[in-house]
Amino acid sequence: MTDYIAGGVPEPLVPRTTEARNGREVAALAGRRREPTVGWWGMAMLIASEVTLFGTFIGTYYYLRFSNAHWPPPGTPEPRVVVPLILVGILATTSLTMQLAANAAKRGRLWATRAFLLCALVVQVGYLVYEVHDYLDQLRYSTPQDNAYGSIYYTLLGADHVHVAVGIVLVIWLLWKLLRGLTMYRLNAVQGVALYWHAVNLLTLVVIGVLLSATI
């Protein structure tokens, strides 16, 4: 039969996601991929809109800042500097572990994937626990109801924590999924969540930076 060429590639050469049944096959198939997957693109879209949302929050922060003479207003304590910075630094490292997990999954190394995810999870949970505690602690000195500064401060920070929390849930879900081996679907999931975490870490850095800008 005549060998038709569609989009440059004849049908038999194209990777078929249904082929993969176990880690090894997944690795083989993933190796033949030359393009980011549909799932990756989907996650990219989600991130795009989340980033825009934070963009609006941050825009609001500065709009309010420049329509106020004193920022933070007199009587409102300035944001804490040292600890948050250190913590964010630590959280940022999880980008590495998450990426390693993704790469391991791509090579079909199930255990390595689990291990890296677990490392990331520990750090992330640690970060969130402290931040939430700190958040509640700050609420004792100033509240969102005090003034516009408080409103945007706590909204922005809170929104960021929520994203971290969601990320943690995702990682836990991944680990649970990976209990029953690796599939193409789960590989895509790991890669997607890794991407999500890169975004969240970046956002956290920016958000903390913005909030601390009030001290200078």
Binding site: L64, P144, Q145, D146, N147, A148, Y149
Partner: peptide, 11 residues
Amino acid sequence: THFFDVAKGGS
């Protein structure tokens, strides 16, 4: 909150 409350620094 006071995002839009001029009296409290909102806009």
